[in-house]
């Protein structure tokens, strides 16, 4: 089968897999953000706990993807839910760590000035700490997204679909075309996502800070 025959026969499936892949990535990174950003903020308020929480999350990060997927399989069965659960856990760490360090690195004299002029905790968080930490937080998001795009290919193994499906089919049938049909779109997706979030990072960096650099 030539490449053009292959493409005409399977293009529908490739496109479907591509969008399933994006769905998996968006959901997992989305859940990751919802968990990691508030948790990161909380840790800056309870720094004694931060050390433990960050190392626990760091350990989760080191569990091999296949093992974690297997564990999730036990709890959630086959399909998208276990895959999303596992990928979300992976997405948490970079965002969590960057939220935490981003806020901790805000110069203490800004906090002192904010307190001194009578801002309450919430105002300091939303008007000073988060805007100043935003470039770092988005940096974490960027890292997570690119990782998750590649790890999501494993999700095909437990029937979650996505570009991983193509790759696994190719591996089990010794058919290079399937492997490439999964790998190339995944690589492109990672590059595009990286660039796109780079733009978002720039747009969300307060103008006054960009000028200062």
């Amino acid at each position: 089968m030539s490449y053009s025959d292959f493409l005409s026969k399977y293009s529908g499936e490739i496109i479907k897999a591509f969008f399933t892949h994006i769905e998996l990535v968006l959901l997992s990174v989305g859940i990751g953000v919802v968990i990691a950003v508030p948790l990161g903020i909380m840790l800056t308020r309870h720094q004694a706990a931060a050390k433990y929480v960050l190392s626990i999350v760091g350990v989760i990060q080191t569990i091999p993807g296949l093992v974690l997927l297997g564990v999730m399989l036990i709890f959630f069965g086959i399909g998208k839910p276990p895959a999303i659960a596992a990928l979300s856990l992976y997405a948490v760490l970079p965002i969590l760590r960057n939220t935490f360090t981003g806020i901790m690195e805000v110069d203490s004299h800004y906090i002192e000035a904010a307190k001194g002029i009578g801002m309450n905790g919430k105002q300091i968080l939303f008007q000073v700490e988060l805007p100043l930490a935003m470039p770092t937080i988005i940096g974490g998001l960027r890292l997570s997204t690119v990782y998750i795009i590649s790890w999501a290919t494993l999700a095909g193994m437990i029937g979650a679909g996505g570009l991983g499906d193509m790759i696994w089919t190719g591996l089990s049938t010794y058919e290079t075309k399937f492997i490439l049909a999964g790998a190339i779109p995944a690589a492109i997706l990672a590059l595009v996502a990286n660039t796109l979030i780079g733009f978002i990072q720039r747009a969300l960096t307060p103008r006054g800070i960009r000028l200062g650099r």
Binding site: D107, A114, K115, I117, G118, M119, P206, G208, I209
Partner: peptide
């Protein structure tokens, strides 16, 4: 304390203008 501080001006050495605001 928050209300008290709003009635007292405060200037620090490092200036502490917020760089993200005009």
């Amino acid at each position: 304390p928050v209300k008290l501080r709003r009635t007292i001006g405060y200037v620090i050495q490092q200036i502490g203008l917020f760089p993200n605001m005009t």
